[in-house]
Nucleic acid binder design. Structure first.
Lengths: 216, 216
DNA sequence: TGTACATCAGTGAACGCGCGTTCACTGATGTAC
DNA sequence: TGTACATCAGTGAACGCGCGTTCACTGATGTAC
């Protein structure tokens, strides 16, 4: 696993030094902030440059356009989500399984709270068919999918889960739930469904669907 | 339930006649088509006008901007999804329950295939906090949510489902799965998970989580 | 059945703004000796 | 320890395009008698 800071390049291909790396980072952070404030449809190169007090020309030294910067932010998330994905590789079948799953679901909700704006844009552009974003999405999803599908196969082999479930589709459905549900949190809380209840519920659904433990 | 064609108005508030309604419709259809082709971030008023061979001024007679047209398309989906939502109000607990759920899930996948571009944009804008889109999303989701939450409560009352599940959160999680999963279909099929397997799996997850029937 | 008039619907052309993008340049940092 | 030079990093200002938007106008349709 190489340090991701290593091979950063400017748009002309040249490898960049420390000072330039800091500028690039500030541009990325500004892009993420504007994505959060204005949404995916309304972030301009000039806005980003203004936000960090730089010339628009500076932006073009590091990114070809706003989409390119969002792609770079998405790539970073692939790394940042790893610790959460690690939780999916643990054994959930023991007596502490439910607590474990709750903790993981809670962490992932936090992750969405922090990176929702970038995640939404990444998913949208991938859903719309952009190949570069599809690729990043695959890298982001793969560890979740592999780990969850393995759990399904395990539970099927030991007879706790019906073989009618497709392991990949099951993993995809549960990941889908985890990736859309955070967007409903505000609405839930306004209607009296607490964050804790959400976590408990998603954790139960995950635990039962992946280990075959009954919901009864 | 009033005929939705009734109170259509131009941007100046005037009620419009048949000829104008046709123009409005062609503009809406063109907007949906461009949304599908170019994605949510890149649909311009001029494009839409060009697409139907009209002057840009014509577009402004019916919509204040592209977002306004997308909102109108979203409102239409609230009506169009009703038949599918009706399936969620049926009794799933009988012996034909599983078949029923499969059929409904299949229909909803088709709905996504047809209206995915508009649905994605509606969800994105709502997720980003736009109040008008949040409102439409609520109207779109409410019948799904109400029906599914009722099923959870039923199953809890008859002891088939644990009371640890929050009915609203359960409904939300399953709806979330149904709304994100279609976006992964292409990836699934490339990897050998068929449409039928997806439907079967989602149907099983829905059926078990909402009726308390075991996945074992 | 025809004519005059009112209203509805649609348009071409123009304006101006803001954005994307580039270029020749300046300033900052690193390094050889 | 200082000086000369190379390279790295950042910039201001400008250009031009395309888009959003509007306005005065024309054409189409409906209706009264």
């Amino acid at each position: 696993m190489t340090d991701p800071v290593d091979d950063l390049t400017a748009t002309d291909g040249r490898v960049i030094g420390q000072r330039a790396q800091q500028t690039r980072r500030r541009l990325l952070d500004a892009t993420a902030a504007l994505l959060r404030e204005h949404g995916a449809l309304d972030v301009k190169v000039l806005d980003v440059a203004r936000e960090v007090g730089a010339s628009p020309a500076t932006f073009y030294q590091y990114f070809t356009d706003v989409e390119d910067a969002v792609l770079a932010l998405s790539v970073e998330l692939v790394e940042q989500v790893r610790p959460i994905q690690a939780g999916f590789e643990l054994d959930w079948s023991g007596p502490d399984g439910p607590d474990l799953v709750r903790a993981i679901v809670s962490d992932y909700l936090d992750f969405w709270d922090e990176h929702g704006a970038v995640l939404r844009t990444m998913l949208l552009r991938a859903d719309e068919g952009d190949e570069r974003f599809r690729r990043v999405r695959r890298q982001y999803n793969a560890p979740f999918m592999t780990a969850m599908a393995a759990k399904v196969r395990d539970a099927q082999q030991s007879g706790r889960l019906t073989r009618s479930l497709d392991p990949e589709a099951t993993a995809g459905a549960l990941l889908a739930a985890m990736d859309r549900l955070p967007n409903y949190r505000q609405g839930f809380e306004r209607r009296g469904t607490s964050r804790a209840a959400m976590i408990e519920t998603v954790a139960l659904l995950l635990h039962s669907s992946l280990t075959g433990r009954s919901l009864g």
